[in-house]
């Protein structure tokens, strides 16, 4: 009985994490992002910054929830026997799970790059310090950061969709790798 409720809780949290990451990214990328072109650029920058700050909190929460709920689900389903010894590398089930873990790690690395490298660059203000060339240089750094954040976000969305596909193949089959 307890195991069943652990399964339900783990399944719920896992699905919630997927929703926050995938659905949230789609809403940010295809709804909230383009809508910013309907307000003046300065205001759009403020909206973009605040919404990204808030969404990053959700993203990190979801990334943390994936392994926690995944492990809970894995052990509550009694799947340990399927991955004993070298089965992690030799069976389709193990290889698919390994693929999901590797892709999750890529999402974490990309998330860290956005949060700790690119976002601080975007938060810089183009002050007059350093003269005209300093302002131009800072603007160039910011534009480059915007471009990279956009590229990485789209790549992350693609990776997350592939993870969902791998997850579905484990839940309804025996893996696809």
């Amino acid at each position: 009985m307890t195991a069943t409720w652990v399964q339900v809780l783990a399944g719920y949290l896992h699905l919630l994490a997927v929703a926050v990451y995938v659905g949230g990214s789609i809403a940010m990328e295809f709804v909230l992002g383009p809508a910013q072109s309907y307000v003046p650029p300065a205001q759009a920058q403020v909206i973009g910054q605040r919404s990204a700050d808030r969404f990053l909190v959700l993203v990190w929460g979801a990334l943390a929830l994936f392994p926690i709920s995944g492990l809970l689900l894995f052990f509550s389903l009694g799947d340990q026997h399927t991955l004993s010894g070298m089965q992690f590398f030799t069976t389709r089930y193990g290889q698919t799970l390994l693929g999901m873990i590797v892709l999750w790690a890529v999402l974490v690395v990309n998330g860290a790059i956005i949060t700790f490298v690119l976002r601080p660059r975007l938060a810089q203000r183009a002050s007059a310090q350093g003269g005209g060339s300093g302002v131009a240089q800072r603007l160039e750094v910011m534009q480059s950061a915007v471009k990279w954040v956009s590229h990485i976000s789209r790549i992350d969305l693609g990776i997350a969709v592939v993870i969902v596909l791998l997850g579905a193949s484990l839940a309804y089959g025996d893996g696809i790798l």
Partner: peptide, 12 residues
């Protein structure tokens, strides 16, 4: 995917 898009969009 469909449910994630719907729920995630509402949460965002």
């Amino acid at each position: 995917l469909a449910w994630a898009v719907y729920l995630g969009g509402a949460l965002a």
